[in-house]
Simulated scan of single mutants.
Amino acid sequence: MSDLIFGISVGIMHLPQGMAYALLAWLPPVFGLYTSLYPTLICFFFGTSRHISIGTFAVLSIMVGSVTERLAPDVDFLKLNGTNVTAEVDVAARNSYRVQVAAATTLLCGLIQVLLGVVKFGLVGTYLSEPLVRACTTAAALHDVVAQLKSIFGVSPARFNGLLSLVYTHLPTLVASLVSLVLQIAAKELNPFLSPRLPVPIPVELITIMAATLISNCGHLNRNYSIQVVGEIPSGRQHLGRCK
């Protein structure tokens, strides 16, 4: 029963997490759902460990995003707007090419990992010192936090001009982010004290996501306060287009 509850909880949490990590990779959110589903099915049939975690990962998403953003920047997909002769980004073409870049990067990394496994390159890991491993883990965590600051503060990568342009921050997005962080940190601190009296820990992450979704939908935060939301998620498998 505990494994069943754990699987359902992780599955529910993996839906919004996968979409969020897809945004870190500069891809449409729906592809985060694909990444959350297909690797798990493959590991179910071919995996050798029941403890390994399969699915989206923040650090890898950021690393893939650095490649997609560099090889498919917005400036390469500008088109003229006929109404006022200004340039706007062709979002459909940009996203299609970024998905192709991410897929090619993933396939190449997979082939490299298979090759390293064939030559037993994992033996090198036994010679890495514990301080080095801790330093790499800490650096990855810091990199993960810094990469998400633009979403927490509601800062656009585009440049702004005018007064205090260097510290431009979208206050409604910042307030929503801070409230979510405070609630999650408070619940994490309270769970150890309340765990003897509760049958299961408080699922604060799930509660936060559900509450934020309801508040955003009922309060029309995107329309009234310009807080960015994921938007519509298309159903079915999306066509990637022909690779260039």
Score class of each variant (00 low, 15 high):
178 L>R: 04
127 Y>T: 06
224 N>I: 12
230 V>F: 11
233 I>L: 06
217 N>K: 04
94 R>C: 12
157 P>A: 03
130 E>T: 05
68 T>A: 14
73 P>C: 10
54 I>P: 01
134 R>H: 04
30 V>G: 04
219 G>K: 00
100 Q>T: 01
9 S>Y: 13
27 L>D: 02
7 G>H: 10
196 P>Y: 02
95 N>V: 08
5 I>P: 01
117 G>R: 07
147 A>Y: 15
41 L>P: 07
188 K>L: 02
11 G>R: 13
227 I>V: 15
238 Q>P: 00
219 G>E: 00
173 T>R: 10
49 S>K: 02
87 A>H: 13
106 T>K: 02
114 V>W: 08
166 L>W: 03
84 N>E: 15
184 Q>H: 05
172 P>Q: 09
116 L>Q: 05
228 Q>P: 06
154 G>I: 03
244 K>G: 14
191 N>F: 03
82 G>Y: 13
122 G>E: 07
199 P>L: 02
132 L>G: 00
177 S>H: 04
232 E>H: 11
120 K>S: 15
115 L>S: 13
112 I>T: 14
239 H>Q: 10
195 S>H: 08
64 V>H: 07
15 L>F: 15
69 E>G: 14
82 G>P: 08
54 I>E: 06
19 M>S: 01
20 A>D: 03
82 G>N: 14
6 F>N: 09
106 T>I: 07
28 P>K: 09
114 V>M: 08
181 L>H: 11
239 H>M: 02
22 A>T: 11
114 V>K: 06
183 L>T: 10
90 D>S: 12
15 L>K: 04
77 F>K: 13
175 V>D: 01
100 Q>E: 13
222 N>R: 06
240 L>H: 06
235 S>C: 01
208 T>S: 14
13 M>C: 11
123 L>P: 00
73 P>Y: 09
131 P>Q: 04
201 P>K: 02
59 V>E: 06
20 A>S: 13
124 V>K: 02
229 V>P: 07
121 F>N: 00
181 L>K: 10
88 E>M: 10
93 A>T: 12
136 C>Q: 02
234 P>E: 08
124 V>E: 01
27 L>A: 09
19 M>N: 03
86 T>P: 08
26 W>G: 03
140 A>Y: 02
169 T>Q: 07
209 I>C: 11
119 V>F: 08
235 S>E: 05
165 S>T: 00
92 A>F: 06
198 L>N: 00
88 E>V: 15
206 L>W: 05
181 L>R: 12
27 L>K: 05
27 L>I: 07
23 L>A: 12
186 A>Y: 01
192 P>D: 06
75 V>M: 11
165 S>L: 00
205 E>S: 05
39 P>T: 07
48 T>W: 00
84 N>Q: 13
157 P>F: 04
229 V>G: 15
214 L>M: 07
239 H>R: 11
133 V>C: 02
145 V>I: 15
158 A>L: 05
